[in-house]
């Protein structure tokens, strides 16, 4: 039992408090009526706090997607207003006023920001909850200041080291996949129309393509936007790119080239003739930094200088 909220911290949320939680985010909210309600019983403040927090939590669980067809069926002839993420009281104002955490539902969507790396760069982002994300070169992740337990992989490769909290799972969106950690270190690689997730510690639930599956250490899954395919990967290799080792299984040379460009910071492309060739194996980056031509031998292709970068092509 705590001094705040008391017995209200478990069990169903109080319906009356929930109604107030819905009302008080509106610009026309009646604050004097709300004050009067609160004064009617000292326990109501705690019930209201809890209703607000639980309502926000369940609202966050709603997948962000436009409601089907509702735009078209809007009865007004006027064009729909811009789907602004900003509420009636802008998030910037609110943030300036009350600090950066725990704002209302109308502002939490506003606090997203992007972290990106240049090709060849590597960078670790520490999140407020103690989790961290290491981004490979040429990668981009979108984070939300209002919800430190979420991330969206927009491009590239990154390794997540997530502090586990069963009550507040860490969620990652990557391509068409939704990942929910079960206590975890996992690697996400995107590119070439595919998204690959590999787990080195803990476990991750992966949802996509109408399926949901659990990945344990050493397991990986690849989505090409249509289907999910399971793979295995040596735990020691997962996130190995941080130490300069890239491992591929069933990757195309297009994907390999894209990954090399990001990690080396040098443009590498595969010519159409070889782009779809499969590659399995590990590539050590350090020797390639010194001499990208080694790649030709490794991949069984010819490599030629092309402007500022390198092109992989069929041997002539």
């Amino acid at each position: 039992m705590t001094a705040f909220g008391g017995e209200g911290d478990t069990g169903p949320v109080d319906g009356e408090a929930l109604d107030w939680a819905l009302r008080m985010t509106d610009p026309e909210a009646d604050w004097e009526a709300f004050t009067a309600w609160l004064e009617g019983d000292p326990a109501r403040a705690g019930r209201y706090d809890r209703a607000v927090v639980e309502l926000e939590r369940m609202t966050r669980a709603i997948p962000v997607a436009a409601p089907p067809a509702s735009e078209d069926r809007r009865p007004l002839a006027a064009p729909p207003p811009p789907r602004s993420r900003r509420g009636w009281m802008s998030a910037a104002i609110a943030a300036a006023l009350v600090g950066s955490v725990g704002l209302g539902v109308w502002s939490q969507r506003d606090q997203s920001y992007t972290v990106a790396t240049r090709p060849g760069e590597q960078r670790t982002v520490e999140l407020a909850d103690g989790s961290s994300i290491t981004l490979a070169g040429g990668s981009r992740v979108r984070l939300d200041g209002a919800d430190p337990r979420s991330a969206a992989v927009e491009a590239g490769d990154m390794l997540f080291t997530v502090r586990h909290d069963a009550a507040m799972p860490f969620r990652v969106r990557a391509g068409d996949l939704t990942l929910v950690d079960l206590g975890t270190v996992f690697d996400v690689r995107t590119g070439g129309g595919r998204t690959r997730v590999a787990v080195s510690e803990g476990a991750v639930m992966v949802g996509g393509g109408g399926r949901s599956l659990r990945l344990d250490p050493g397991q990986a899954v690849v989505s090409d936007g249509r289907a999910l395919r399971r793979e295995r990967q040596d735990v020691a290799e997962i996130g190995g790119w941080r130490e300069g080792l890239l491992t591929f299984s069933d990757a195309t040379l297009d994907e390999v080239a894209a990954a090399l460009s990001r990690h080396l910071g040098v443009a590498v492309a595969a010519a159409p003739a070889v782009g779809t060739r499969p590659f399995n194996g590990s590539i050590e980056l350090a020797p390639l930094r010194r001499d990208p031509r080694l790649l030709g031998e490794l991949l069984g292709v010819e490599i030629r200088r092309d402007g500022g970068g390198w092109t992989l092509d069929a041997p002539r």
Partner: peptide, 15 residues
């Protein structure tokens, strides 16, 4: 409303 809401958010934050 802005002031009330800001005060309300302070309390939600504390909670």
């Amino acid at each position: 409303a802005y002031l009330y809401r800001a005060a309300d958010l302070l309390m939600i934050d504390r909670y």
